[in-house]
């Protein structure tokens, strides 16, 4: 049994209550309860609404995961939980629940980094991670380029956003275009009927910026440019070509993301690029990354969309890796750390 640990993972860093169960490197179940519809009324994630939903969903989601996987809690070998980064109050619900499971069942507890989990999840999808792997994580909460020599112990941040996260830019532009929250899928859909007719700015890609911020991202200027463009058109009494604006905006975001990711692969001798996070579900990002990786001779790994967004499977996957590699467990006084640094893989 010890070489195939059965691990339950809990993820509550934002608005999804995720429970996943992994045996070794095999995903048995990925159960999710999302409060996204409650947040839609507010036009964005409200931390207190998310935390209340986590409390309500926790036990039913654990129960559903176990039933679907045909696993009893007493069969488990370990518990893993996202201990950060994320929304403090939301994280605390997951961390407390994980501790309760660990102490009730007498199991080791692994408090793991949310970003490292986004990388580790691809192990259950596409097999062992090449070492090193380059990871591009893009969502409403993060935009990071990570060099990953060992996902259980060594994750090195190369760059991240200096202002808005990529997913935030999607949400804000969607609002400007009158599209619903969350913006990502709606912009993706609208863009399919559009043409790339507007040349929006690519943040931190030229001149001095490339010296100081070669692997960093900035999406706030892009968001402002879209807002200005739309406002100017409205003031001129013209209708807004929503599909074209969506396509042009999406092109600018994916151009910067893929360009910098491939540059980072070359610079650090990584011949594998993995993309994760909610924005990885974007169809244009997937297509452009595929095309540019092929041209650069880089292997692209993208988990299926359900495993790119926040989920419990990714936490279980990383927990199982921790056990397989004999990493030390966390202590029961493990804190929920909303600003957990990415270099800290296990708290």
């Amino acid at each position: 049994m010890s070489d195939e640990p059965l691990v339950l993972g809990i993820e509550t860093s934002c608005d999804e209550t995720g429970i996943g169960i992994v045996r070794g490197t095999t995903l048995l179940v990925d159960a999710i309860a999302s409060s996204v519809e409650e947040h839609a009324r507010f036009g964005g994630v409200v931390p207190e609404v998310a935390s209340r939903a986590h409390l309500e969903a926790m036990v039913p989601t654990i129960q559903r995961a176990c039933e679907t996987a045909g696993v009893a809690l007493t069969d488990l070998d370990g518990i893993a939980v996202t201990s950060g980064p994320g929304l403090a109050g939301a994280l605390m619900v997951g961390v407390a629940s994980a501790k309760a499971l660990a102490l009730s069942l007498g199991l080791p507890l692994y408090g793991v980094n949310h970003l490292a989990s986004h990388v580790a999840v691809d192990i259950v999808e596409h097999g062992p991670l090449p070492e090193p792997t380059m990871a591009l994580l893009v969502s409403g909460g993060h935009s990071s380029l990570l060099l990953v020599p060992d996902v259980t112990s060594d994750v090195r941040p190369l760059g991240s956003t200096v202002d808005d996260a990529a997913g935030e830019a999607f949400d804000k532009v969607a609002r400007v275009l009158g599209l619903p929250f969350p913006g990502g899928p709606h912009i993706d859909r609208a863009a399919r009927d559009g043409q790339i007719t507007i040349d929006f700015p690519r943040g931190l890609t030229a001149g001095r910026d490339m010296e100081r911020h070669r692997f960093d991202f900035s999406f706030s200027g892009l968001k402002t440019a879209v807002t200005r463009w739309v406002t100017a058109e409205r003031e001129a009494g013209r209708g807004i070509p929503v599909a074209d604006v969506a396509a042009s905006f999406q092109e600018a975001v994916t151009d910067v993301l893929t360009r910098k990711a491939i540059d980072a692969c070359r610079e650090h001798g990584a011949d594998h690029l993995q993309i994760g996070g909610g924005v990885a579900a974007n169809s244009r990002l997937r297509a452009m990354a595929r095309e540019r990786c092929d041209r650069a001779g880089i292997q692209l790994r993208v988990p299926r969309p359900g495993l790119c967004t926040d989920n419990g499977a990714m936490v279980a996957a990383l927990g199982a890796q921790m056990m397989l590699k004999g990493r030390e467990a966390s202590r029961l006084d493990l804190p929920a750390d909303s600003s957990m640094p990415v270099t800290l893989v296990r708290a």
Binding site: R52, V59, I62, L73, M92, V93, A100, L103
Partner: peptide
């Protein structure tokens, strides 16, 4: 919530 989720999770686990 820390107390509540700890209680209901322990109850379920046990």
């Amino acid at each position: 919530r820390v107390g509540l989720v700890t209680a209901v999770t322990m109850g379920h686990a046990l």
